[in-house]
């Protein structure tokens, strides 16, 4: 069942198409990664989903309700963490956490609040003006994970966190998923997405250019190979599906399109394989492939 679904979602600012015909869906119990560089339209999409911005065209629904019409009803069951958390300088972190939890409605889970404050190593008695970016994000994260939401919408939630806190965050996400909650995670930290997400959508210039599970995405792309052979491999460069061949003495590294993998391995094996390493492409490889050459046309941020 899709908890969140958009169909042809489009948002214009004047003549500028910030979000262009986006179709995504987040299923119950899954973590959906929404990746793309700054200015690609991630935050705009999320703000439409939250009912802050009115879609110019298309439909978006959460829990089967319209995100614009039924915003308040929807928000009772979601938790949102913005990337840039601007807080009130003269309230303390603890006050803001309570305020956020209360405004969402539902029961205030004091134990969960204290547990998270401990986990994130956060001091709630300081005024918000003294918090660093990471600490402001903690306020928002603690309020979100202390609430009993069905869907978490997280917009670059870890850009100011240190590696330890980043791990705590990942644990919170995994815990939520294990409880059958859904998460929409927008990020440009690809290792994080790779680790947490079941499916991803890659956005560029307001359009989704690729989406699916990581396995599916990998299938569309190349495998990295490192080979060492007894004899020098010949006529490799002319083979179909072979890219980026680099020779280092006896060793050779290359990328192979997934559909040509069989042919290439057969060819290589004629030369007496001493060592063969293969690695799936990282998300970064996938991502870079989509962006290489595209930056010239899509650099509005």
């Amino acid at each position: 069942m899709a908890l969140l679904k958009t169909e042809g979602l489009t948002k214009m600012f004047g003549n500028f198409k910030a979000v262009d015909d986006i179709n995504i869906d987040v299923q119950k119990g899954e973590v959906y990664g929404f990746i793309g560089p700054n200015g690609a339209g991630k935050s705009t999409t999320i703000r439409v989903l939250l009912g802050m911005l009115k879609a110019t065209n298309g439909k978006a629904s959460i829990f089967g309700k319209d995100v614009w019409q039924d915003a308040v009803e929807i928000h009772k069951r979601i938790a949102y963490v913005p990337g840039d958390v601007n807080l009130w300088p003269n309230l303390t972190g603890g006050e803001v956490i309570d305020l956020f939890m209360k405004l969402r409605g539902g029961a205030m889970n004091k134990n969960r609040r204290e547990e998270l404050i401990g986990k994130f190593n956060f001091d709630p008695s300081k005024k918000c003006r003294t918090y660093s970016k990471g600490n402001r994000q903690k306020v928002s994260l603690i309020a979100a994970f202390a609430s009993d939401a069905d869907l978490y919408i997280l917009d670059e939630p870890t850009s100011g966190l240190d590696p330890l806190m980043e791990r705590t965050f990942q644990e919170c996400v995994m815990e939520a998923r294990d409880e059958g909650k859904s998460v929409l995670l927008s990020s440009h930290i690809l290792s994080e997405v790779e680790r947490l997400c079941d499916r991803v959508g890659i956005i560029r210039d307001g359009q989704i250019i690729e989406s699916g599970s990581l396995d599916e995405l990998r299938h569309l792309t190349r495998t990295n190979l490192n080979v060492e052979t007894k004899q020098q491999i010949t006529s490799l460069d002319d083979m179909k599906g072979v890219h980026h061949v680099e020779r280092k003495e006896q060793a050779l590294s290359l990328q192979v399109d997934t559909e040509n993998l069989d042919d290439v391995i057969r060819h290589i094996s004629q030369f007496g394989v001493v060592k063969l390493e293969s690695a799936p492409p990282t998300l970064e490889d996938l991502f870079m492939r989509h962006y290489e050459g595209a930056s010239a046309s899509g650099g509005e941020s």
Partner: peptide, 14 residues
């Protein structure tokens, strides 16, 4: 202007 309304409207506040 300080982007602080999102905190309220993103929760169950009309």
């Amino acid at each position: 202007k300080k982007d602080r309304l999102d905190h309220l409207l993103g929760r169950a506040v009309s």
